[in-house]
Amino acid sequence: MHEEIIFAGFGGQGVLFAGQLLAYCALAEEKHVTWIPSYGPEMRGGTANCTVVVSDEAIGSPVSQHPSIAVVFNNPSLEKYEEPVKPGGLLVVNESLTVAPPTRTDIEIVRLPATALASELGDTRMTNMILFGALLARRPLVQVATVEEILIEKLGARKAHLQEANLRALARGLELGVAQHA
């Protein structure tokens, strides 16, 4: 297994956290992993993205020109990252904040209105967990149980009240990711 994943969206959508969550889970499962954020001045109120490489082998390049997976949270990210996804790769799209559907036919595409769904669950900030669930439904990079465990650990005592909602968001994403696959 060797996957190169880009998470991209606006600052504040939990894009970097989604990537870190994957990285922590990969470490917990003793996989090799790297996480790199975009750290330019554009982060302040602008676009944010991170690249995560998960592999069974030691990782050379932590950067990727053609990721095998892109999870896009908004329209600028869809415009930027649809094209570079490797043929046969996976594109997870937040339908709520994108304009037109992706046009590639040589990659797997999952579209779900993640922000609207998060809103239904009570907080748009859970958009990232819904998209993360959909990603896992299609590419079981790490086990769901690991994600749940790490999520609870990372939310910590201070955000313990958000545990249940986040787990529900993750489950909703998984469910829809599977449904679209069928």
Partner: peptide
Amino acid sequence: DGLIGQMMEP
């Protein structure tokens, strides 16, 4: 460089 400085890795 900034990449190693900002990168998270086990």
